[in-house]
Amino acid sequence: MNATNNCPQPIKVTPEITDDDRTRFHDVISTDLADWQVEQVVTPSKIYPRQEKLLALHWHPEFVPMDLITRRVNAMFPNVTDKMMIPTQHNILMSYGDYTGVEVDCYASGFNQKVQLLLHFENERVREADVLKSMLAHTFKYRSSQLFEYMDAITKPDEEKVGLAARSTGADDELVEMVRVYVTKIQTMLDEEWSDVPKESIKNKLLKNYFDAMRPIYGDNTINRVQAYLKAIKQLVKSNFSLKYFYRATEVIEEARSLGGCVVIPHPEEFWPILLAKYDVDGIEVWNPQSQRYTDFLISVVDQQNTARPSGSRKRLIFMGDDCHMSEKTKRPETQDPVKAAREIGLQPAWDDLNIRKKLIIAGIDRQSVITEYRERLAG
């Protein structure tokens, strides 16, 4: 029996793994796309015929094939005359066209915080990049381990984290127990089928996606309460996640430079001290869908840094990142996060915002100038 949004079913969960549980698990971890998913991926919700330059240096293909991504981008921007697209999967090198990129989790020891860096390369420069690839493999494995800490906090259970999360979200004992039982099932199925589980599925959103798949059973009201509770626990786990196993940001930058790569700071709004660290980077992302509040200020910061730079040194470039996660395009519309679903590769409206554009003109920056300059830097 399916639940309606207004009349959710009572929460009744048995600890045994049912056929439905396992089918749902396989659906959630699968990276194969059904026909309706392919159609959804290649069909953008809006077309931008007046955009002629496309600069996309911060986006995540995840498990969506590049040919489908190309079809979507070409449909969205049919009149582009020059473009630069470099994928930045989390801790995995991926290539598109002539370029390879990655978004790396690392540790800024100067202010004791995890930060992220975007690395970009011409493809040939990372063909034999064994040291960088080993660093990324270690980081990917360690970063993925957060999922297991997350699940353990729910199933062990960690009474402190569970209590804090329940109180902050109003989750009652019945809901907490429901989540514990289902997450225990997920842990068991992961262990049983580990060799066949796509490694790109081993991330925190596995739990979110699994419970979203149960909306027809329990209704939106119950699942929304579950998601709020899960999010609260996830934040507690992330805040206590050890940083000592990440590589230092300076180590990551040094390795990228040794290979002739370029480095960009994303999300500066989340990592304010990184602007003071004087890292050897090519530019700063001043806008993305998560970081819009201080765009004007960040443009001024970059402009001031360029004015004060030593004679002969390269200026810092201004970047904008769409931070699009393509897996969101593969979900049914009713289970999509509307904020994340709105993100598109190459869609950075701040370039055309009249107030921001005024600042960019003063700084002598536009999309074409960044594409041209960055292309030259990547060529070495």
Rank of each mutant, 00 (worst) to 15 (best):
H325V: 09
Q304P: 00
S313D: 13
K340Q: 14
P338A: 04
T330A: 01
N306W: 12
V339L: 10
C324S: 15
L298C: 08
T335W: 06
P310V: 01
D296V: 00
L298A: 07
R309G: 06
I299W: 01
D337N: 15
L298E: 03
P333S: 08
S313N: 11
S311M: 09
I318T: 04
V339S: 08
S313I: 00
I299G: 01
R314Q: 14
K315D: 10
F319Y: 15
R316W: 11
Q305S: 08
P333W: 07
N306G: 07
P338N: 04
D337G: 01
D323Q: 02
H325Y: 14
V302S: 03
M326K: 06
V302H: 01
S311T: 08
D296Y: 06
R314W: 06
D296F: 08
H325D: 05
Q304L: 12
A342C: 05
A341V: 05
A341Y: 14
N306I: 06
S313H: 11
A341I: 03
I299V: 15
I299N: 01
F297T: 08
T295W: 03
P310T: 03
V339E: 13
S311R: 09
M320Y: 02
Q305T: 02
K315Q: 13
P338L: 04
G312Y: 13
P310W: 00
K315M: 11
G312M: 11
E328H: 03
D296S: 14
D322S: 15
N306V: 07
Q304H: 10
R316N: 09
T335H: 06
A342W: 02
T307K: 14
K340A: 12
K340F: 11
F319H: 06
N306E: 11
D322F: 02
R332E: 14
L298R: 02
V302A: 06
Q305C: 10
D303I: 00
M320P: 02
S313A: 13
V301R: 12
I299H: 00
Q305N: 14
R314E: 15
R316I: 00
A341E: 09
F297I: 04
S327Y: 14
L317N: 04
E334F: 10
Q304G: 07
F297K: 07
L298N: 03
